[in-house]
Write a protein that binds this DNA or RNA. Structure first.
Lengths: 333, 333
DNA sequence: AGTCAAAATGGTTGCGCTATCATTTTGGCT
DNA sequence: AGCCAAAATGATAGCGCAACCATTTTGACT
């Protein structure tokens, strides 16, 4: 194995200087047609690949953005990620991704690690970063986007929607449909789930008529199977009285739906079911499941655009961007 | 904003030389207790974060591995990714991830881009890389793992299972169950799907009794909804004769199942349905869906371990590792 | 042909770190 | 106390590239 070719090797083959090769690679518009062809030919011929570390060091531009999500297994963040990757491609950036497993402490460590790559922007999920994490981020001086939720005190920029309002709205929807004994089924209980639960409680507290409500939660991670178990739990706790469940996400809702069938409960006659995130399956099961849709892909895209826009100009603190949500009413309610 | 602190700044605060600080950070065992405490204190105090680019340039170790998957939206690759991330954490590595959208050409470009980060290992999905991509990879001299499928001519290392055999086995299962007019429903038609289809055809060709088979495929990307459409298509094509479908993945199988119910076909009496990948939902729908399970998470983990093991020693070409698969027989067949 | 500004190309230097080797300090032993 | 190997720490150089500024070439105009 010969050692990897560098700029000088290309320069030699192309018969130009090293700096010229560099220019061809980074500013193809600034050089003459002939030169570019000659150099590109040489690059291809010897299979030259630019050393990113050296380039980043010399130019102080890493061409990288850092992203931290709480979970790789949750489809929700996948959609966001796809948005991020699609946007990033336009800007010729690389993504370095971290999975903090819903833990602020892991997130803090990840932030330190990812910052060492000198990212040009940072995308975080949620707003519950540790104090030291916030310090590191602020000190880094790069643009930051906090994603998914809205907060009054963002580190820098913020884009998302109100999970509290969404939880409240969908609970109101249940109440409007005449259900008076709704239950909340929650898993994981991350901040966004808690906000949805708070919305649930608020809707019930504000409702003009009195009603009985149930809350069954677990810190286990969410799954379809768990949805079934939680439905059993809420039916047991309510002694069969519970007539509607707001599941903190669609996985649970699917599981609750399957379980309801096994328990011979008619949906929505005996029990209404609604979920959150509007996964594809929710629209296609029988009966289809009412859910809350949000523009996840677009949120990811827009987060990248915000970073790019911000890295140019000076810090003009923009207000949080509310991307909103939509209650998708279906047969299950 | 003061500019970011560097090694010298830490050294000044700690009252030692820059190189010593470097050593504390990279070889904490090689320094005295006192020194380490002093330096770590200084690091934390000024919020120093090591410049990865400079470190990588000077040490020729990037601490990064590159991973390319064909799709971010496919849960299958998510499981693999999780395995990769879990293994990577042990080794203090970062992952740079690319999504090639099932395109070898995009993959080639991605490979070039990711190689510029001087990764210490490369994980690829599948075995259909372009010629130039293979050249670049080989020239890079780093360990490479091709994942998911098995091949006789790997670029370097290879871990996966035979999609051909799996497709053949599950088709045999249908035939053994007495179905004589099976159909294959395929989406995307990436190499692995094609191998499953080839297995399907082989099983039918080898079967001792003659039977009628149907193949309906599309290059559209897979979805639950599409599964329903493909079921309609195969029933139309077979004039209602088709009595079993092998769906190239579980999303299609779920869609086919939902559609079968809408068409008032009993599963498995009127039509058997089986899928591939054994997603959680497949076990929980009614009737539960027969599928093919494979150790995806472990494959991802093991790929990383292979890379790490290989980067130490010399290239001793190991044979491909077959992780196997398992037919999970359920109510739908 | 001669002029001059604009476009194209090249030389030097330093980004922040670590490898290599050199030097100093430590501490167990006679 | 004196010796010496081992442990701890420091000085120097260079990784491969792009910023900066210098130089050469081009071509539109008189």
């Amino acid at each position: 194995m010969n050692k990897k070719p560098n700029l000088k090797d290309v320069a030699k083959v192309a018969g130009v200087s090293a700096i010229t090769v560099s220019r061809v690679l980074s500013n193809p518009d600034k050089v003459s047609e002939k030169l570019r062809a000659k150099v590109e030919q040489a690059v291809h011929e010897i299979g030259y690949i630019r050393n990113h570390a050296a380039s980043a060091l010399a130019s102080r531009r890493s061409g990288v953005i850092a992203v931290i999500i709480p979970s790789l297994s949750n489809i929700v963040f996948n959609d966001v990620l796809q948005g991020i990757y699609s946007a990033v491609k336009q800007h010729q950036l690389q993504v370095i991704l971290g999975d903090c497993h819903y833990s602020p402490l892991e997130e803090e460590k990840l932030i330190a690690t990812l910052l060492s790559q000198s990212p040009e922007g940072f995308i975080l999920t949620g707003t519950d970063q540790t104090h030291y994490a916030r310090k590191l981020l602020q000190q880094s001086g790069i643009p930051i986007v906090q994603l998914m939720e809205l907060t009054d005190s963002p580190i820098d920029m913020n884009i998302g929607f109100s999970h509290f309002n969404a939880g409240m709205d969908i609970t109101r929807h249940l109440l409007q449909k005449g259900y008076r004994k709704p239950g909340f089924l929650g898993a994981r209980m991350d901040p966004r789930t808690q906000q949805r639960l708070a919305g649930f409680k608020k809707a019930i507290a504000d409702f003009k008529q009195p009603c009985q409500s149930y809350v069954v939660t677990t810190t286990q991670s969410s799954s379809i199977r768990l949805g079934g178990q939680l439905l059993q739990a809420v039916m047991a706790e309510s002694q069969g009285q519970c007539d509607a469940v707001f599941c903190c996400n669609d996985d649970l809702a699917l599981g609750a739906l399957f379980e309801a069938k096994r328990m011979n409960l008619k949906v929505p006659a005996d029990i209404a079911i609604c979920g959150f995130n509007d996964l594809e399956a929710s629209a296609l099961v029988e009966p289809s499941i009412t859910s809350v849709a949000s523009p996840r892909f677009e949120m990811g895209q827009q987060a990248v655009e915000l970073l790019m826009a911000a890295s140019g100009e000076d810090k003009t603190h923009q207000p949080p961007i509310d991307v909103g949500y939509r209650i998708v009413e279906r047969a299950s309610t």
